[in-house]
Design a protein around this nucleic acid. Structure first.
Lengths: 206, 206
DNA sequence: CATCAATTATGACTGTAGTCATCTTTAGTC
DNA sequence: GACTAAAGATGACTACAGTCATAATTGATG
């Protein structure tokens, strides 16, 4: 076998993993995450339990892959936006607000995603987190250089604070009673408020 | 038996609950939360497993009681501070920052506490959350009336945003590598920044 | 003190996540 | 095609959380 073509083994492996992932999320959507057991997933994907755990060291690991899908898409969209020149604060803000749409697609799944994310149990979490971070920081630095955000503050700190508010708003939305409030509007409101300040003015101008 | 004195049954019940709680946290501190099983707790507290679950519908419920202890203390301290007249922003900020000391007392326990808090699995969670909320909001309204915080913004929103940053800073600290950064200094830095604003100025004065 | 209803304690049992020694399949070699 | 080593699959097994029918304890009442 040459190195170029993918061996049957590789192909089967990939197929099995794909099948487990596909079947899992089907069941999650149909019956909810808590109510879906690994046994059921194995049954539906026609693999032994051991096989499941060969691919995913624990049940929650499945969500790591959802995270990867999301960040792939997000990176693509940010690059696209930056291609049209450096953004204003409003443009950048709205681009990131749109990512909240991932959570809106399936609230139940989103809830679990946020939860597992918090627990930091994913294996690829480090990598995925790093990419999310890089995405945000890159934009913050650009905004600082354009004078749209305070340049006298560590961009990592600005990033973290905006991230806090962003993240917590989503968590709040996930837990809010039906019908949920309009997530993206609320994000816009809060992020704007934080950038404008809640009260006192800084002692020095920026 | 008169209604004034507590029956032996009541006393025993209380004793058992206390014993389970005490023994649990001893074991948590000694071996870590994950590593401590309910069986071990029951063994050490000399009760049957069923008894444990009579008192605490699930293992995590134990943390609900820690939450209650914390909020009791916090309420006491805020009342004390308000007794000395309405606070400035700096005073109020620092009072709340001191509460982060609960987490500093035992980082491992704190980690679990924050996690379980997020998951919202405590039974008394509603009540305890409500009290924490009331505590914060009360102070925000006071600060607004003194012109220390923007009065043109819903106090609940200000409260939520400051809470986001507060909470997330603690989570970050809990996850930070040894030796951890100085938590209270970092909280002060971030909360101040949010109140002063990250960049753009509001269109209208406050 | 005997009886009873209500409360609390008990531990065998169930369901599920996760492990591991063993078996099967595959790609490469002669 | 036969052989081999390594990758991958398997399911019986373990460990733990949580349940529930039953037993024991308690306080009240005659």
């Amino acid at each position: 076998m040459t190195e170029l073509e993918v061996s049957r083994r590789e192909r089967k492996k990939e197929e099995t993993k794909e099948r487990i992932l596909r079947v899992s999320f089907e069941l999650f959507r149909k019956h909810g995450v808590e109510a879906t057991t690994v046994d059921q997933i194995c049954e539906a994907a026609d693999v032994a339990k051991g096989t499941f755990f060969n691919y995913f060291p624990h049940k929650e690991e499945l969500f790591g892959y959802l995270g990867e899908v999301w960040v792939d898409e997000a990176e693509r969209r940010v690059a696209e936006a930056l291609d049209q020149g450096p953004p204003t604060w409003e443009q950048a803000r709205d681009t990131f607000i749109e990512f909240a749409g991932y959570y809106e697609e399936d609230r139940n799944l989103g809830k679990y995603m946020a939860q597992e994310w918090n627990r930091g149990r994913f294996d690829p979490a480090d990598e995925v987190c790093r990419r999310w971070d890089a995405l945000g920081k890159q934009v913050i630095v650009l905004l600082q250089s354009r004078g749209e955000l305070r340049a006298d503050v560590d961009p990592a700190l600005i990033h973290r604070i905006l991230g806090d508010v962003y993240h917590d708003t989503i968590v709040m939305w996930l837990e809010s009673p039906e019908p949920p409030f309009p997530l993206q509007d609320e994000l816009r409101r809060r992020l704007t408020l934080v950038v404008e300040g809640l009260g006192r003015k800084p002692k020095e101008g920026r």
